[in-house]
């Protein structure tokens, strides 16, 4: 083969191989790591998969936060005002975690229907509401439960 063609062929082969590896790895990694968001209504209705890493979010139900006496285990309920889901978490909660505030948790649903979180995110400041939470509240509060918080949330998401 002509040396220039040979060289070009090498380059092309290298490129194709590189792209193939990259695409392969990407699709594989993507498939492993996509975390879908479910709101409490969906989880309560059994629409969320068990033992798959998902995101869940809503408001922390008033009076639901309970701490274990000698570990960092904490349990609380997350609600969208039409259904609520029990959440368990062991570790440090974010500074702005509080009852009546919006949170997003990452974790897995176990067979007892408890959401075992490995990460809990709360809002950065008083104006911020996780967009997923805002939308979930919006969906569940068609009409009666429209609290001030929900209205604020809807404003934040209107981009």
């Amino acid at each position: 083969m002509h040396p220039i063609r040979k060289k070009r062929l090498t380059i092309v082969l290298f490129l194709v191989a590189g792209i193939a590896i990259a695409v392969g790895l990407t699709t594989y990694a993507l498939r492993q790591n996509i975390n879908l968001f479910y709101d409490p209504t969906e989880i309560a209705a059994g629409n969320a998969p068990v033992d798959v890493r998902i995101r869940a979010g809503g408001m922390v139900e008033e009076g639901s936060v309970a701490r274990d006496a000698d570990s960092l285990l904490v349990s609380f309920r997350v609600t969208d005002f039409s259904a609520s889901v029990p959440v368990q978490y062991e570790g440090i909660l974010p500074d702005l975690f509080a009852e009546g505030q919006g949170v997003v948790a990452m974790g897995r649903l176990n067979d007892q229907g408890v959401f075992v979180a490995d990460q809990v995110l709360a809002k950065h400041d008083e104006n911020y509401m996780p967009p997923e939470v805002a939308e979930a509240l919006e969906r569940s509060s068609k009409g009666q439960h429209k609290s001030a918080d929900v209205e604020k949330a809807a404003e934040t998401t209107a981009y």
């Binding site: 790895l25 594989y28 492993q32 975390n35």
Partner: peptide, 18 residues
């Protein structure tokens, strides 16, 4: 088409080999 997030493991598993 849905709300999802792509977690750190995605980046770690793909970025590290590169």
């Amino acid at each position: 088409l849905g709300k999802l997030s792509i977690g750190e493991p995605f980046f770690n598993t793909t970025f590290s080999p590169l």
